[in-house]
């Protein structure tokens, strides 16, 4: 549905995006991750037909953004981090205005339908300037959906939303995936990305440095393990150091000591570590694999890129 092909974008000699290529398929949520200035917003603006690429091309629903940007815009719904609403307009007039810009056949009915879908039907006549932050973000989403686009570009949609509202928004995005929308989610919220993204694209200094399924990305780097024991943590640390295993203190309960270590070869290292701890007179209680978050993996990928 979205096919980004070797896209480069320069602003006054500064390269914001360099030879970026990735895809978002129908019925898929792809999270676009990266630090500030990595080129995420530039990428989503190019895909949405707002910015022209300096080199390369993007196909949205098989339409080239270079050749027919207006058709691409008609097939994309764009949600920005700031709702950016016309504050003097009431909700109904606002949605109708955008419905007309997108050539929706029955703009009034569509405005009512969307307001109902997002739980805003009781404030249709109210001015947008009086809306809360969460309501404003809902309006921005309604605006993006006004023409029922096959592609959604969500740029930090949950910024400044309270946890309950963010959860509601996540559920709504997931429901759109079920309706075969292609969704590109630009976000700094790695927890959100981990929960709903099928795949992840990591950008760093304008380049795509990693693409993969969320589960694959989470598997990046060494697996780590936490061992809990009864005894002195310093003695346990020394025992692991003697066999060449670096360890760090880990949170523990019930008065037990706990250390975390990472290894490329858990079959060999874990049994050696267990033996070293037992030989040092420590009573091992548990050895568990530490679950890695997308955040851990993302930070590891960035650290690797910086090196």
């Amino acid at each position: 549905m979205i096919d980004v092909r070797h896209v480069t974008r320069r602003f006054d000699g500064v390269t914001a995006l360099e030879d970026a290529s990735f895809e978002v398929r129908s019925g898929e949520i792809v999270a676009l991750l990266g630090p500030n200035g990595a080129g995420k917003t530039t990428a989503s603006r190019i895909i949405g037909g707002i910015l022209a690429p300096s080199e390369g091309d993007v196909l949205v629903d098989a339409v080239s953004v270079r050749q027919d940007p207006n058709t691409v815009r008609a097939r994309c719904g764009f949600v920005t981090d700031q709702p950016s609403l016309y504050e003097r307009m009431p909700l109904s007039a606002y949605l109708e205005f955008f419905a007309r810009l997108y050539d929706v056949s029955a703009p009034g009915a569509r405005a009512v339908e969307l307001a109902r879908l997002l739980g805003l039907d009781d404030v249709l006549g109210k001015r947008l300037g009086a809306f809360s932050r969460g309501m404003r973000q809902k309006v921005a989403i309604a605006r993006a959906l006004v023409h029922d686009p096959p592609v959604l570009l969500l740029d930090e949609p949950a910024t400044a939303l309270d946890p309950e509202m963010a959860q509601t928004l996540r559920s709504f995005i997931v429901s759109l995936r079920a309706r075969h929308r292609a969704i590109l989610l630009t976000t700094h919220d790695l927890d959100e990305a981990q929960r709903i993204a099928d795949r992840v694209v990591v950008l760093y200094k304008g380049r795509v440095i990693r693409i993969g399924a969320t589960s694959e990305i989470r598997a990046v780097g060494k697996p780590s393990y936490t061992v809990t024991f009864a005894g002195e943590p310093a003695a346990a640390h020394a025992a692991l150091a003697r066999i060449g295993v670096a360890s760090d203190p880990a949170p523990s309960e019930d008065g037990l000591g706990a250390l975390r270590f990472a290894t490329d070869d858990p079959r060999k290292t874990n049994s050696e570590a267990l033996r070293a701890l037992l030989d040092a007179g420590l009573r091992v209680v548990t050895v568990t694999a530490a679950e890695r978050s997308l955040e851990d993996a993302y930070l590891a990928i960035l650290a690797e890129a910086r090196q």
Binding site: G48, G49, I50, N70, T71, R73, A74, C76, F78, T80, Q82, S84, L85, Y86, F98, L101, Y102, D103, A140, R143
Partner: peptide
Amino acid sequence: ENGTLVPLLAAPIR
């Protein structure tokens, strides 16, 4: 300044 131009630029208009 308010960013309200962005949704307008994202719409299929010349």
